[in-house]
Design a binder for these strands. Structure first.
Lengths: 360, 360
DNA sequence: CCATTCTAGTCAGGGCCCTTGTCTAGAGAA
DNA sequence: TTCTCTAGACAAGGGCCCTGACTAGAATGG
């Protein structure tokens, strides 16, 4: 019987998924919801209870909907575990424990004093994860991590690219979190997660991040595309229209305009936002060249502009792109508060649910 | 029994797939190959024969492998049909009928006298398809079409972009072929299909097409990505490094070097290939800028260079990209003879097989 | 030349999973 | 107290597949 028990596992999967969305159901409600018979629903619940995935909540239907025999409510057991949603930024780290319903059941924060020194971030990460897990009281099943630096797709390590700020320093989030994650550790950079959170808008779009650093995420056919080594969207070296009509690398435009912080590769956002009309036009031109490239290579329905100064200069960008032969709608990012965390949460929830239903 | 017959359809699917790869098998061989019992294999064959998908070939095992009772060979019936693999180029159209084994069972060619006049191409297409289908003697199930112009993803129609040669003219391959295709008509441009054919090399790469026209295909996570409207890879307007260090649109570089054909937007390949060292270096610089952009937005493992003059200038391109902060391996295209047709054939075969196994 | 050997295909019996239909338990309504 | 209504359990049955035994029929080999 090679594929006979497949149908049984399918039934169990349906039951788990129904409980994820309705939190608690009686066996009769499960049968009606899924479209299976009551005996089948009962058997499935028994199996899942034996495996520790489902438990009788102790609640009874009495007092709810009229007469009839009382029913027992079942729900997912705490043993199904939580997912760690983690954001590592230069200011500090956030670790949240998400349960299977998407609720944040615990949260811990640690500040980092010396960024660009990986061991600081690693220590903060371990401590925050320990605190959050202790507070949640449930086992972790996996971790989804955002880091404010380019991430190597194969290893999950942060990589230092020339001319790009290296905010967090040498850090291997997979190695740091593996002991606490209880499963896979998925790492990607913050821009990609922010794009992930705006994914419902379109199946093909680009997210242009314009802040202290420069980044871009490409969403194609509904998924964030990372490329071979995970460096899709590292746009510092794209050739664009610089001052005087010269072809200049994108990041160098800001140097030539005197908008890079001294002794750093980061952009001085304050000075940039206080710039005059000519400066804003020059920046708009430069961004326009990048837009032309992303239009050519990603053909997005729209271009979402985020970051600390991108939305403020959106008119200059629109003006620069208005004359281009091919255009794409340019709009500011929709999510303004914690877009990165929103994307990380969404992925953590989706993966946690898959891990539970797919398991064995 | 909501999902009970799922396992039966799975069995049938396995049988069909086994027959696609082995062409003819006895029921006992099917059972051994798939890992099911002989009675189950026999039942499945009976069902599929009733549906007309499988037929006794009349061949018997006698004379082959020693003693024992003779077995009956079964194979897929001709009624499973063929896929139309179609290439539309300015010179003419090719229509091939591919059977489920990937063999070309019929082929028809029509020349086109007046390109850029869509009705000519449409007539040639209809005639070639009719000839090929008559010769094949099997019903068509779907068509996969390559066109040497940008293709609108939503409609399958050819689109005219500014500064890009419009070789075939207004043409709606879906409408033209629908009556003969017997199913869906999938249309994409030639560069994407050529990239499709090189897909086994890597899951993330870019295919740079440098010929009379300029194009690029982006393969990400193993699939050719088309973008929202299907115009991914239309690189004529990417800003790059032009003569004198100015930021120039890619296509304009060729105009400034005097390499565009008079009265047309096409590149004069002969003159280009006869150019001096300075010209080749200038072209290499310009292509290098495009490479920088594709590296930033697609992060390919390698960049495959094809087209009529691309491979010939690969050293100039490599020299221009050698100094770039981020690099990707650049290599000439592997498939040189009919890469487009190879990609179209591969997709047609894959879709034909899916259509047969998924049906009902 | 005939018994042996070996394989393709069929038949019978049984297990698994689900379904329908019936029955029991037990709470609210009359 | 009796009726009504629902959650859940139990029994019977059907679909699909498997194992094991059986039949048919050709080549081998003494």
């Amino acid at each position: 019987m090679p594929s006979q028990e497949l149908v049984r596992s399918l039934t169990d999967e349906h039951v788990l998924r129904a409980l994820m969305h309705h939190r608690r159901l009686t066996r009769a409600e499960l049968a009606a919801e899924i479209g299976i018979s009551k005996p089948t629903a009962g058997e499935s619940v028994r199996r899942l209870a034996d495996r520790g995935l489902v438990a009788d909540t102790g609640e009874r239907t009495t007092g709810g909907r009229g007469r009839g025999r009382v029913g027992s409510y079942y729900s997912l057991a705490p043993a199904v575990g939580v997912a760690l949603a983690t954001v590592i930024a230069p200011e500090g780290v956030v670790v949240e424990c998400l349960d299977v319903y998407g609720d944040t059941v615990a949260r811990a924060i640690r500040r980092i004093n010396r960024p660009t020194h990986g061991s600081q971030a690693a220590a903060a990460l371990t401590a925050a994860a320990a605190e959050a897990l202790a507070s949640a009281g449930q086992p972790a099943r996996l971790a989804v991590v955002s880091a404010a630096d380019p991430v190597d797709r194969a290893t999950g390590r942060l990589v230092h690219l020339p001319d790009s700020p290296f905010l967090l320093g040498e850090l291997d989030p997979v190695a740091v979190l593996a002991p606490q994650a209880g499963g896979p550790v998925i790492v990607d950079n913050d821009v990609n997660w922010a794009a992930h959170a705006e994914r419902d808008a379109a199946r093909d779009f680009a997210y242009l991040f314009l802040g202290e650093g420069l980044g871009c995420a490409v969403v194609s056919d509904g998924e964030v595309r990372r490329g071979h080594s995970g460096l899709t969207g590292e746009i510092a070296h794209v050739l664009t229209l610089g001052p005087g009509g010269r072809a200049v690398r994108f990041i160098e435009v800001f140097g030539e305009l005197g908008l890079r912080r001294d002794g750093s590769t980061a952009i001085d956002v304050e000075r940039l936002l206080g710039g005059d009309a000519a400066t804003r036009a020059a920046i708009g031109q430069a961004v326009g060249g990048v837009v032309a490239a992303v239009v050519a290579f990603a053909d997005p329905l729209e271009i979402v502009v985020g970051g600390s100064w991108g939305p403020a200069l959106i008119d200059s960008i629109r003006a620069a792109t208005a004359r281009m032969p091919r255009r794409a709608a340019i709009r500011p990012a929709r999510l303004t508060s914690e877009p990165v965390l929103a994307g990380v949460r969404a992925e953590a929830l989706s993966r946690l649910r898959s891990a539970i239903t797919a398991k064995d």
